[in-house]
Design a protein around this nucleic acid. Sequence first.
DNA 1: TGCTCCGAGTCAATCGTTTGACCTACAGTT
DNA 2: AACTGTAGGTCAAACGATTGACTCGGAGCA
Lengths: 339, 339
Amino acid sequence: MKPGKRVTLADVAAHAGVDRSVISRVMNSDPGLNIRPETRERVLASVKTLGYRPNAAARTLRTRQSRTFGLFIPDYANPVYAEIIKGAEAAAAERECVLVTGSGRVAGSAQPYLDLLADGRVDGLLLAGGVKAPATLAALRESRMPWLLLNWSMTDATRHIVLDDEGAAAMAVEHLVSLGHRRIAHLAGPDGSDTASRRASGYRAAMRLHGAAPDPALAVRADYTADGGFHAMTELLGRTPRPTAVFVANVASAIGALRAAYRCGVRVPSELSIVAVHDLPLAEYLVPALTTVRMPLEELGRRGVEKLTTTDPDTPVAETVGGPMELVLRESTAPPGVN
Amino acid sequence: MKPGKRVTLADVAAHAGVDRSVISRVMNSDPGLNIRPETRERVLASVKTLGYRPNAAARTLRTRQSRTFGLFIPDYANPVYAEIIKGAEAAAAERECVLVTGSGRVAGSAQPYLDLLADGRVDGLLLAGGVKAPATLAALRESRMPWLLLNWSMTDATRHIVLDDEGAAAMAVEHLVSLGHRRIAHLAGPDGSDTASRRASGYRAAMRLHGAAPDPALAVRADYTADGGFHAMTELLGRTPRPTAVFVANVASAIGALRAAYRCGVRVPSELSIVAVHDLPLAEYLVPALTTVRMPLEELGRRGVEKLTTTDPDTPVAETVGGPMELVLRESTAPPGVN
DNA sequence: TGCTCCGAGTCAATCGTTTGACCTACAGTT
DNA sequence: AACTGTAGGTCAAACGATTGACTCGGAGCA
């Protein structure tokens, strides 16, 4: 309305001819308020005509909550996080809160976003990986604010939600075994990654279960990137005897792995089967289309926000999202030796 | 210090034995403050031992600025936005501000994030597409707050920064022409997309410039998704005579296009050359690796934040980020008819 | 001695909402 | 007539930081 002037409660109160507190109580539907219907109408009308919007800072200052949650991710370029964000945004929206996301890709640290928590700008913080310093965790714990680790944990981090990575690995391995594979390699995630070690242990367990001893020479570490997958796969294909199938811990690596197979003249799936963890829209359009294990990433984000709102900062959280996990069959797996 | 108690200015003041205002001025290095070095030391020491952090809400309320910028994107799953975010985060960090990002994928609308602006939670808002309603623009303009459209514009939106899409299209077409192609198709972006129409017009201009009249039958619209690219390309390959090359407006579509060519038994690049706009780390690992035009997306994000801080909300902005644009030669283009 | 000036801080209003406590006029009771 | 109850609000103190205006004691000066 008035150019350059923010409308405040006082303006609305003056316009409607009542006290500021009435406006506030009407807007927040305070049950302790007795008000004549006509007055309420008048208030509502004033709010509308003046275009009043409560000032978030003032409200946060007074109520000590911002109706905002933060989600920190290491890198937006990793499409896996897109799914997590989606779930978290949805859960926040259901609570009439907003989710703000930030990455540490630039600063190389989560500090600016941890500060959001410390400064009281968010009511809780979800950390989806990328924090290395144990000091950070200590600071978090001391802050007495809600926080949660998503899809990873540190030894002394008592609040985290993870996925069933062992289960996913088992699913992948079982699929390969059922196709007839025995020499199954594992293109594992990077050293120090929590999900990587869980997937690796799931792989080993599943291998043993099916009487196929996991050969340490068939496990290679790779970054969760196409580049990492390319190099690791190239190395793996140099080994003799060559594996007939490989379980790749990450879909980005799998794209690199696919490329490496192509480069080395190894045909997928006839000479080499590939199955990766995490499904992506993209996977369907690769050549060959990639068989994957779909994980409930969206559900993970959703549960994160839920837990943030329902548990107080002191109680430990250690949850595994069961969710629907599914093997998505496409073209990159086949029985060994067929052509 | 005190468990469960936030440390406020008053606490620090009491601890250091000075007035609150001194603490505030020291922390903000107010030039108008005269203070003995020893007192300053005492203040700093108190701040440190108590672990004082200024409350963001209180500060925002008083100063009317939050040192926070917002960036709205339609969908995190589109990796193009990752680059923009990266640049914007960097620019924000340089100004000791934080960038918070949100998408409209869930709510289907930017409203929650526009509200952030209206509620005074951010000092400015960057909108990277996805807002359809003209009413939204009107609301923005009326808000008297800094905002900017990134990489798109609407007819009546007077504040936007775009990339040189015509130039990118020209680069792609010229590359194909120089390889000897004449029948060059265009897999254009969706109807109503601003970048799509600029790339399309750049394509037509470049075609005419090289004496190759753009055949309307060789331009097909596709969503900026792998799926869209797949279908559009399938359709295009049904036309006779078939094009020898195609300029794809978007890298995600190009992945689908690649798949479509494979499905139709058309070999890339020997029977069909493909060049797409936007480079991605992924492009290098596709089979065949995709030739692309790299756009200065990061620079776009960076300029966005800069403009937000340096121009006032009333002055129009219409900038084209020149930046380094580059043709990234890979395997998906070759002279026509070669095998 | 009286006056000004300055260094070193102090005071208190202010930002916009929220919320527990408090009024006030009138109707109904006894 | 005095009292109670209630509908329909009003009052004002927070919340925590910022900042323009002000104070106070001593040094410098004439």
